[in-house]
Amino acid sequence: MLSQDSLKQIDKELTKYPPEQNRSAIMAALRIAQVEHGWLSNELIKYVANYLNIPPVQALEVATFYSMYNIEPVGKYKLVVCTNLPCALSGGVNAANYLKNKLGINFGETTSDGKYTLKEGECMGVCGDAPVIIVNNHSLCSHMSIEAIEKKLMELQ
C-alpha cells in the first residue's frame, strides 16, 4: 500500500530507535503514510503496523489520539486556523471567519468540490506571527491577513 520511497523513509525513521523499539517509529510511519494517501484508512493503519511488526491496535490508538492524523478523508487542501487566545488577539478569529464565509463551510467541513477542508487549530507555537494557517499539516503560513489568505487560496488550486 506504500511506495518504495515511503517505505524507505520509514526505514530511516526506524534507525533512530533501539532495534527492539520499533513502536517508537509509529508516529513518523503514520505521518509518512498519510502524506502519500491523504488520510489513514483502517487498512492503511493496519498495513503500517504490520510493516513495523507491532499490533494494529497500537497504531490505531496513535492515529486516533494525535490531532494531525486524518482518520477520515479530507479535501485536497486541509486548512487549519489557530483561534486560540493569543492568535485571536491578533486576527486569528477574523481569519477563520473570513475563510468560513469565503469557502461557505464551517470548521470540520469540506467544500463540495473536495478542494478545501477547514479545521480549527489549537496552539501551534507561533503566536507571534498570528494569524497562522497550516496547509496540509506541513506548510505553516504566518501573518495571514485577508490579502495573504486570498493570495494563498489562489495558489492552492
Binding site: 486560540n84 487566545l85 507555537g125 507561533v126 503566536c127 507571534g128 506571527d129
Partner: peptide, 11 residues
C-alpha cells in the same frame, strides 16, 4: 513540544 498558548520561543 512547545504548545502552551502564547509560547513560541523554542521554535
Amino acid at each position: 513540544d512547545e504548545g502552551e498558548p502564547g509560547t513560541f520561543k523554542d521554535k
